[in-house]
Simulated scan of single mutants.
Amino acid sequence: MRTGSEPLTARSPLRMRFWFSVWGLGWAAFGTAAFALTGRTGWAVACGVLLLVVAADLAWVAHRMRQGPHYQPGRDVPPYDPPDIP
């Protein structure tokens, strides 16, 4: 049910995004090293660029998580105001 206040009360799954970024960072680093060692420069550069993008996303997510519950409400904050039932 939509209440009309969703943009004000929307929540982002930052913890999940954080762990996906950590997972992606590991795979991008592995790919960069593996392709560099096998002599595939183009793929190593592509994985290196991906590594930089994932690292920037991880830094941004960590920044947002450090801002606290104003920007990431806890589990006790409902995602929307309950509708008024007459």
Results as ranks from 00 to 15, higher is better:
44 A>P: 08
32 T>V: 00
70 H>S: 13
84 D>Y: 05
85 I>Y: 11
70 H>T: 10
45 V>N: 05
75 R>M: 08
69 P>F: 08
58 L>C: 03
21 S>Y: 00
46 A>I: 01
18 F>D: 02
54 V>C: 03
85 I>W: 09
28 A>L: 04
58 L>E: 06
70 H>D: 14
81 D>M: 10
63 H>T: 09
80 Y>I: 01
86 P>K: 09
72 Q>I: 01
6 E>S: 04
41 T>G: 05
17 R>L: 15
60 W>L: 13
15 R>I: 07
56 A>L: 08
85 I>H: 11
28 A>Y: 06
17 R>K: 09
17 R>G: 04
18 F>A: 05
43 W>K: 13
1 M>A: 12
22 V>Q: 12
77 V>R: 11
81 D>E: 14
57 D>S: 09
36 A>I: 03
33 A>G: 02
74 G>V: 00
71 Y>S: 07
27 W>A: 07
63 H>P: 01
11 R>P: 04
9 T>D: 07
9 T>G: 07
73 P>R: 08
32 T>D: 04
63 H>V: 03
73 P>E: 05
48 G>Q: 02
75 R>Y: 01
1 M>N: 03
37 L>R: 14
25 L>N: 01
18 F>Q: 15
48 G>F: 03
7 P>W: 01
82 P>L: 13
35 F>M: 12
57 D>Y: 00
23 W>S: 15
67 Q>G: 12
82 P>G: 00
22 V>N: 02
84 D>A: 12
26 G>H: 04
56 A>R: 03
66 R>W: 12
48 G>L: 00
9 T>M: 14
52 L>G: 13
77 V>L: 02
74 G>F: 00
32 T>Y: 09
71 Y>K: 00
52 L>T: 04
27 W>Q: 11
22 V>G: 01
85 I>S: 07
49 V>N: 02
19 W>E: 13
23 W>Y: 14
32 T>E: 14
51 L>E: 08
21 S>C: 15
15 R>Y: 13
61 V>E: 05
61 V>S: 03
28 A>F: 00
42 G>A: 06
32 T>K: 01
49 V>A: 08
84 D>V: 11
15 R>G: 11
81 D>T: 10
49 V>G: 03
14 L>Y: 14
4 G>Y: 03
78 P>V: 03
82 P>A: 14
18 F>V: 07
11 R>T: 11
31 G>W: 02
3 T>L: 08
7 P>I: 00
63 H>D: 13
65 M>S: 06
8 L>R: 08
67 Q>W: 07
84 D>R: 10
70 H>G: 15
68 G>M: 02
16 M>H: 09
62 A>F: 03
47 C>P: 04
13 P>I: 05
85 I>Q: 10
53 V>R: 09
86 P>R: 08
79 P>L: 10
48 G>S: 07
52 L>V: 07
64 R>L: 15
39 G>Y: 00
83 P>N: 06
58 L>Q: 08
67 Q>F: 00
36 A>D: 13
31 G>P: 08
12 S>C: 11
66 R>C: 12
